[in-house]
Amino acid sequence: MAAIRSSDPARPTAILRQRADYLRAASAQRKSMPGFLLQARARREDEPVAPDLIRVGFTCSKKLGNAVARNRAKRRLRELARAVLSDAGRPGWDYVLVGRPEATATREFAQLLAEFASALAVIHDLPIAPPRPRKPRGKKK
């Protein structure tokens, strides 16, 4: 299994490669967001995978667009996982990010980051932090 770069070396992350792993994640918990669908599952203790490993997979269907659009969406999803899973992911879990057309070019990356963090919080039943208040914009005269 190839590891993706993680900002936290204490939480090793690997890529899902087997179709069976994707199917197991698809039958577990789901959280739908505008830019992606998050599927997650806690691995059983008897599985032959290191228990402290976080595994993640990425997929985009042809509904998303041509190969260029699908590859761009997967690159953005990989960067999401790299940025968020080292902090919010749990060891012993498998995550699958399914791209949606909004993930390609129309959705801001900062918004995707916030959505991914809140989706993980819902999946793990963590309290979601309230949104920060926005600064009022002054009118120019």
Score class of each variant (00 low, 15 high):
140 K>P: 08
131 P>T: 09
122 V>D: 00
91 P>I: 01
81 A>Q: 03
69 A>R: 14
44 R>S: 13
57 G>L: 05
88 A>V: 02
51 P>W: 08
128 I>W: 02
115 E>N: 05
87 D>M: 03
75 R>Q: 09
90 R>C: 07
76 R>C: 06
61 S>L: 10
64 L>V: 15
74 K>P: 01
99 G>Q: 09
20 A>Q: 13
41 R>Y: 01
42 A>L: 02
89 G>A: 06
118 S>I: 04
129 A>L: 14
57 G>T: 03
29 Q>E: 06
141 K>L: 11
125 D>Q: 15
135 K>D: 11
96 V>I: 10
12 P>S: 09
114 A>E: 13
71 N>A: 14
129 A>T: 14
63 K>M: 04
96 V>K: 04
101 P>D: 08
50 A>N: 11
141 K>H: 11
41 R>C: 02
13 T>Y: 05
62 K>W: 02
120 L>M: 07
97 L>V: 08
52 D>A: 13
140 K>C: 05
100 R>Y: 11
76 R>P: 07
91 P>M: 01
71 N>M: 09
54 I>N: 00
128 I>V: 15
127 P>W: 07
15 I>P: 01
63 K>W: 00
65 G>C: 08
94 D>L: 03
84 V>E: 12
51 P>F: 09
116 F>W: 03
33 M>W: 00
95 Y>L: 09
20 A>Y: 02
54 I>P: 00
86 S>N: 09
27 S>E: 08
118 S>V: 05
45 E>C: 08
132 R>Q: 14
85 L>D: 05
9 P>E: 10
28 A>C: 04
141 K>P: 15
20 A>S: 13
62 K>L: 09
57 G>S: 07
